[in-house]
Structure formats: structure tokens, C-alpha cells
Nucleic acid binder design. Sequence first.
DNA 1: TTGATAAACGGAACAACGTTCCGTATAAAT
DNA 2: ATTTATACGGAACGTTGTTCCGTTTATCAA
Lengths: 190, 190
Amino acid sequence: MRADARRNVDALLRAAATVFDRLGVEAPMRTIAAEAGVGVGTLYRHFPQRSDLVKAIMQREVDNCVVAAATLGGSEPPGAALAEWVQRLVDLASTKRGLGPALHSGDPAYQALPNYVLGQLTPALRGLLDAAAAVGEIRADVDARALLLAAMRLAAPASDGDVDEARRMVALLIDGLRFQASALAKAPPG
Amino acid sequence: MRADARRNVDALLRAAATVFDRLGVEAPMRTIAAEAGVGVGTLYRHFPQRSDLVKAIMQREVDNCVVAAATLGGSEPPGAALAEWVQRLVDLASTKRGLGPALHSGDPAYQALPNYVLGQLTPALRGLLDAAAAVGEIRADVDARALLLAAMRLAAPASDGDVDEARRMVALLIDGLRFQASALAKAPPG
DNA sequence: TTGATAAACGGAACAACGTTCCGTATAAAT
DNA sequence: ATTTATACGGAACGTTGTTCCGTTTATCAA
């Protein structure tokens, strides 16, 4: 790969992050190219679709979340680790302001990104869920992928700056898991 | 108001509902005008903003939800009424496929619609919450508006046809309210 | 260092869409 | 029937997405 190409890819990613934060994911491609100091042709060559740009920007954040799951899982009680990690999803949403609409727009152009995010985060969450379920802190019959999608939806308001409300609602969702665990403990099946 | 104007407003609303369902809320204005058999000028005169169209289409559905809250509240135990009514929000989301992205897009043009929807549905939900809290079935410290927003976010996947998953997650959220109620009963403050 | 070559660049150009504007048509009232 | 206010239609303009190709430039071999 040529040196100028690598430089431009870098500049484009930096520019896109800035512009998306300022104008949202639907910001004009021309604006991103201008911010990066390149022509639109260069932008389209490296990122044929808008979602490619969004994917690249999010990749690092998602990876950070995955390692955080392992860290928390090794240093906290399973229930607490789960509760804390899910709060990190709220941070992710608030950091990458304006990217949420793209994920949930239903536009086929954005199908690739949610799949990547889910593919990375679902196993991380499943590990935390299994650990908490093994010690009876939560119910054991909830699909990790479904819960992840739900939590990310609840984290969306963080993009509007209302981080606290998102935190409360995500915590409420986890409380839902705990309620069923205690209900089953009080009235065991059979 | 002139007769032809009234006819065209009607045709436009019918056409917009059809086209939004087929192509999503971002469907071209030209397409809606063509479907209604009128010029774009007529469309813009009656509905200067896209959100005006969306608002008018949704109004009836929202009103139906409000009367349902009163009906359920009068015929079911408070906790059950709450749980059932929140499931109606899932129906609303699945019926008006493709309109969710507009509500959550953050685009200022759509600010009016969420405000209307929330303004109508929040008091309805608050009534159900108060009744359930009064008999100790749920915790009493959750803001109705915040819970409504959260439930609507969870109901969003219904637009993609996955209604069952949405139902499970919304139910989980309500279980969260019940968990805190039972936790407080077991360990009273003081 | 220089010349050849493949890779990458820039931005003009075209298409699609949102939105406005105004000449024309028509419903309603006299 | 005439008048007039109201509404209509669609051409026209600005913006944005996307493509295409003539030009520039990094890389490497001689």
C-alpha cells in the first residue's frame, strides 16, 4: 500500500469522526473529504460505502468493550461485572454520538456494521451472563444477542446527552434478570 | 376549506401511509405526490414538512393507545394492565413499520412528532404506573416519560418483523419494576 | 539519478431528490 | 355569469450521492 494512500485513509477516518460528531452520520460526503483535505474520489475509493467509514471508526471502541468484559469478569462478582459492563455500552453510545441512528435505520447499507458489532460483543456478554447464571444471581434463559440489542437500544438516548436516564433504564433491564432468578428461587419448578 | 383541498389532503395521507410502508419514511416526496395523483406543490402546501405527514398518520394510532389504557386500567389488576398496555406499544411499532427511524433520528424536523406522541402516551402510562404502585406491585420511583421512551425503543425491532423478541424485552423491563418492589419489601429502608 | 509504471489523486459531471415559485385552473360567492 | 380568492401543477434551482477519467505521484529498477 502506498504511503500517500495510508496517510489519506488515516486523515479520512479522523475527519469522518469529527464531522459525524458535528453533523451526524448523514453528513455530506463532500464535507468529510474537505475536512480531510482530499477529493471525493479518494474518499469513495477507500470507503465505497458510508457504512465502511462508520465501521472503521467504531471498531476500536468495540474492541475496547470486548477486553473490558474479560477484565471485569476476572475482577468482580459475576452479577456486578455484568451490571458494570452493560453500563459501558452506554458510554459507547454517548461517545459515538450520532452513529446510533445509522445502526437502527434499517437501511441495508448499514447491515454490515451491526453484524460486526454484535458479532464482537455478543460472546463477551454471553460470558458474563453464563458466569452470573452459574451462581444463581440471574435467570439463565435469556439470549445474549437479544439482550445486547435491547441494551444498545436503551443506551441510545445517551447520544442526546441524557446519559443518566440511559443508565437507569439499562440498570432496570438487568434488574429484570435478577427478578426472575429470585422468583424461581422462591418457587422452584416441579 | 375548499372541497378539492380536502379531497387532496385525504388522498395524500392515504398515499403517504402506503408509500412509507413500502419505502420507509425517507421515501421521495415526488413518489407520494404521484401516488396521490397530485403535484408536489400541493403536497408541500398541505404538509410543508415531512414530519407533518408522519404526525397526521400516527395520530389515530396514538389516540387508540390512549383509550386502551383507560379500558385496561378499568378491567384488569393494575400490574397486568400495565404489562398488557406496554405490549400495545409493540403493536404500534410493528403496525407503523419504518416510522421508528424518524422518531429516533435526532433530526430537528421530527421533533414535533415525538413530543406529540409522548404528550399523549405519558399520562396514560402514568395512570397505569400509579395504580400498580399504589397496590405495591411495582416500585414507585420511575418516571413515566422515561419508561415510555425506553419501552418504545425496545419495541423498535418489531418494525423488522421480529415482534416476539420485542415482546420479551419489554416484558423484561416491566419485570425490572417488579424486582425492586419485592426487594424493598424484603429489606425495608431504615 | 533517472525513467518507467502502476497506483492513487482530484474534481468535473451526471443523476436523484428536496424545495420554491408562479402562471393557470377552479371552487365558491354574488 | 362574473368575480375573486383559493388551490393546483410542474418547471426550475440548489444540494448531495456517486462515477469517471485525465493528471499526479510514489515506488522501483537500471
